[in-house]
Write a protein that binds this DNA or RNA. Structure first.
Lengths: 218, 218, 218, 218
DNA sequence: TATGAATGAGCTTTCATTCAT
DNA sequence: GATGAATGAAAGCTCATTCAT
């Protein structure tokens, strides 16, 4: 767990580097907070426990984060943005055409990329997945970022491959949902429910790709 | 929401009917608790709020449920048992052979049944899905009931159809996971994330059946 | 413990026999109450625990005893009266002259009688001793019964033996206090602090008598 | 009452001075707690009442004392140690031989010292005496400190004077018990039961010394 | 008479937040 | 910037007492 948290932290630190650098204490607070949020949930975590694990005074937390909720958002928001980053740059379509000539290649790339992402950010994602349904503010942010930004672009990709006759003429939303379900189901099984089992990425990815492709063959 | 809660409640009342009948107040407490737990989560719900919504004194809650956690378990546990009920009766295999001669029929039946179940018990399921990762006791119960009871039986079904050459020779765990992912993804989308949209069950079921069947064709 | 309680109970039952007989439940309540009061103290005992140990409903307690305090008083008061009984009958002095011609005989008789009494009523005495300092009502009752009734009579006895030249000319209050201290110290050591040790009544009584007599010799 | 509490407090403050100084609020809490515990007993005292009398917020109590019981122990424990202090220093026997050549001198010194001690620490002693029979933790501590430390040393003193032929050949436990009973009886009468009466220390001490000495003469 | 569900005030304890140092 | 003592509202829970059955 701590290793995972560290990986995310080093990225987060770099993220803030440009404008306001994170203090040493701030880093320790974020680290402690993610660890405990991931373990017992936001609502069941006390600021005093975070302070203790971070090795700082309780007051120090509130010097940097006005409220406990602000601390949660400071952790989840940047990762939520990262989550959609691969899909939102302007030339997404061009890149797509150049790099992936078939839906199979596209699906394989997306799956690999998402597994990689989940692995890198797992503790924060766990917090995000569980808190999003309790925090309207996170829900709103998610809807804007994913719903409008990502969904639209992917819908166009799907429609393109449908026009090519590569995939079945289900409503694009269905195609999206079916594909995403398979990937999400894998990620939850692998990282949340059976994280102790040994997993063979390559084999699993190929299984999923075959399943999705066959499933969507016209 | 209230309608859904009512549907679950009337079943719960019947469940208890045999040994210790539920008091009028007890019913109101369960009703209020599920509603608020589903809305803001177990940890963020106060017993005083439950009491207020139920129209009883706070002490009344603790007369029937020794702790707040006991109240949660009294709500979730019976539904968790119901959840696995269709798979655990002794003659599961016989029934299977008689009723479903193909994996397609089996999958279609399961999907329909699960949608029906989710619809009937949605509010409690929502609470269960969100709390299971915080409550080791629920996790343990789930592992016993689902892991040992259900998974084994379904694995045998899958192996049977694999021997028939109907479905691809993936590891049974993969087949299970892929199938379940599709159904779970649908249920979450439909009841949790986009419950306001209009949904066409029949069409959706056929889409899923086609997707899974094609996906698993050898 | 239970045996001791039983001994006291049978007397209490007889006490009430004349006017209002104690119901079966009432007896069980008194029994349970004394046991738990003696164990954990009045303030730390809940009426629900008494009801449970007595095997009756909580409401039943309040049918017989208007408040928890009333229950305490119903237990302690009769024993407090018994405590002073040997000293308060009208012809105390006559009896004294007939039966005890020396202070030694008087002291020996009193000590034996008090040990006997303490043994018989120990659980209730324990409750009484500990609660008397918290309950003004018990204090008042004690002051009236002991202070005015008993102290006066004993003072006269002491003054009589002082006039006989048998005991030293300390203030009667001092003689009383010194004598009582020795007996009380023995009873507390024997029943409260070291109840598990084996005790030899006869030897101990003679030791005390000798100590007191020598101590008070002019 | 308040004066007595103050006397004890100033000693307690000095006791803590070396390692962790007591906060101003902490002192007020201890002061208020002793006063109310002494008045109505530990179990019947609410932390809110303590907070109110101390003029602090209820939360402040729990910042310094994890539980209400911890608060009780913080008050009683140091006094219990003080209680045995005069008997436990290493050279107790030497000092004894130098200072007290007769049992009479020894008894007189002990009585004076104990009266002095009781006077100084009365409110806390009252709390201690009443709570010790409800709190196994206090009982255990008392048994260790008094039972093993003090009783042994005093037994040796008694045996020494018995060898000198100064006091009667009762079992040392009896001598101890008889002597202690007289002192304890005096202290309880003087401070607990009849604290309002005027008392003449010097006369009372000489009375007790004479009583004990005569009582124990061989 | 006896019950036990119901009450609501009060209990101990927790907690996010403030603020003087 | 950092601290941690202090706060007081609110948490989960207990309890003596009431009352309809």
């Amino acid at each position: 767990m701590t290793d995972d948290v560290d990986r995310w932290l080093s990225e987060l630190i770099r993220l803030y580097e440009d404008d306001e650098r994170l203090t040493d204490k701030q880093i320790k607070i974020l680290q402690a907070a993610v660890e405990i949020f991931a373990e017992k949930g936001y609502a069941s975590t006390s600021t005093s426990e975070i302070a203790h694990r971070a090795g700082v005074a309780e007051g120090t937390i509130f010097r940097h984060y006005a409220t406990k909720k602000d601390l949660l958002f400071s952790i989840v928001t940047p990762v939520m943005s990262k989550l959609v980053a691969p899909f939102v740059f302007r030339d997404f379509n061009k890149v797509l055409h150049l790099e992936y000539s078939t839906y199979e290649e596209f699906v394989r790339a997306v799956i690999r990329n998402r597994i990689d992402f989940a692995q890198r950010y797992w503790p924060v994602l766990k917090v995000m997945v569980r808190e999003i349904s309790f925090q309207p503010q996170l829900q709103a942010q998610f809807k804007v970022e994913v719903g409008t930004q990502v969904a639209q672009r992917i819908r166009r990709v799907i429609q393109y491959f449908q026009r090519q006759g590569e995939i079945v003429e289900f409503p694009p939303e269905s195609v999206m949902r079916l594909t995403a379900s398979v990937v999400l189901g894998y990620l939850l099984t692998r990282f949340l429910w059976m994280s102790e089992k040994p997993w063979d990425d390559h084999k699993d990815v190929e299984e999923m790709v075959r399943f999705i492709l066959h499933g969507l063959t016209p």
